[in-house]
Amino acid sequence: MSPQIWLITGTSSGFGGLLTKAALAHGDKVIATARDPAKIADLKALGAATLALDVTDTEENVNKTITAAVEIYGHIDILVNNAAYILEGAIEECSPEEEFKSWNTNVFGVTKVLRAVLPYMRLCRSGVIANMGSIGGWRGYGGAGMYGASKYAIAGLSEGLRQEVAPLGIDVVCIEPGYFRTNFLAPGHRTSSAKHIADYDPVMEPLRNMLSAYNGKQPGDPEKGARVIVEILTKTGRVQGKVLPGRIPLGSDALKVIGGFCADTGKTLEEWKDIASSTDHDDVAKN
């Protein structure tokens, strides 16, 4: 099998750099991107091509960067939208400007990169797109509502896009990790809202304390996670012959959270089905 060509955003921290290394170790070629390519010089030394890409830049500049990326190897087989932004704060505390910064990276940045890459994948009638979601895209958490909302959006976007491009030979998956021992929870990687409302301290302080205490103790091994993502997206090893689902959990805690959500939802549907279905017209057959 010939080497796959990867394009990965946000490779200067978190899963991005480890995923680049895992893909290279798999024998593939990687175009690693970051706002500052100097921060990914180690990936370049390992054989990755590196480019400056700020997913919050203008559509024109993102398109130019993707064009330059395609020119390196001639095409892109696997796109991983990995760049992410954590905004801490109660919903009322978050300003419109802070909200936009969060969504500009986590959602609008993803759609800009998608629009730039998809024409090349459509031309080849092949490709795999992975959008990095989160268990926060299944359950909302007080104090992290903006982040969770953006990950809910990514899940919905991925499912819609998956249906649109499936006839063109392109796969789309939303990978939803639990807590992995990356630097994602480190204080310097979490942005807190500037506004403080004391009424929300009973929610915000326990959250901040939990995240700080949990940093470095997360159950997920990010190197193992990166290798599994490579296995999934290249459809090799244990994934060979499988049809990729639209949403893929990553980590035992992700299985627990998502499984719990599905069980709770099932109970809610059963408890409320009579009330919910009572809104139908009288000529609608009842099952």
Score class of each variant (00 low, 15 high):
52 A>S: 15
177 P>H: 08
155 A>L: 15
163 Q>C: 13
108 F>L: 07
196 H>C: 11
182 T>V: 13
135 I>C: 00
211 L>P: 03
41 A>E: 07
89 G>T: 06
171 D>I: 09
43 L>E: 02
271 E>I: 06
73 Y>S: 04
260 G>R: 14
28 D>M: 08
43 L>Y: 07
189 H>C: 09
124 C>G: 04
241 G>K: 07
148 G>M: 01
261 F>Y: 11
264 D>R: 15
97 E>L: 09
124 C>D: 03
159 E>G: 08
133 G>T: 03
282 D>C: 09
256 K>S: 08
61 N>P: 06
49 A>R: 14
224 K>H: 07
286 K>L: 15
213 A>P: 13
227 R>M: 05
132 M>A: 00
70 V>N: 06
42 D>W: 13
65 T>H: 02
96 P>T: 05
104 N>W: 03
29 K>D: 08
53 L>F: 04
75 H>R: 13
138 W>V: 08
8 I>Q: 03
253 D>T: 11
206 P>E: 13
71 E>K: 10
124 C>F: 10
108 F>H: 07
237 G>T: 03
223 E>C: 03
236 T>Q: 05
94 C>S: 02
247 R>Y: 07
111 T>P: 04
205 E>R: 14
135 I>R: 05
114 L>D: 02
210 M>S: 05
157 L>T: 10
161 L>G: 06
179 Y>T: 13
131 N>Q: 02
271 E>C: 08
171 D>R: 15
146 M>G: 00
205 E>F: 05
154 I>T: 10
29 K>N: 03
100 F>L: 12
184 F>N: 09
156 G>W: 15
168 L>Y: 14
217 K>F: 03
212 S>D: 13
73 Y>G: 03
97 E>H: 07
6 W>G: 00
152 Y>S: 08
175 I>R: 12
190 R>Y: 12
80 V>K: 09
43 L>Q: 09
46 L>R: 13
222 P>R: 04
11 T>P: 01
83 A>W: 05
284 V>C: 06
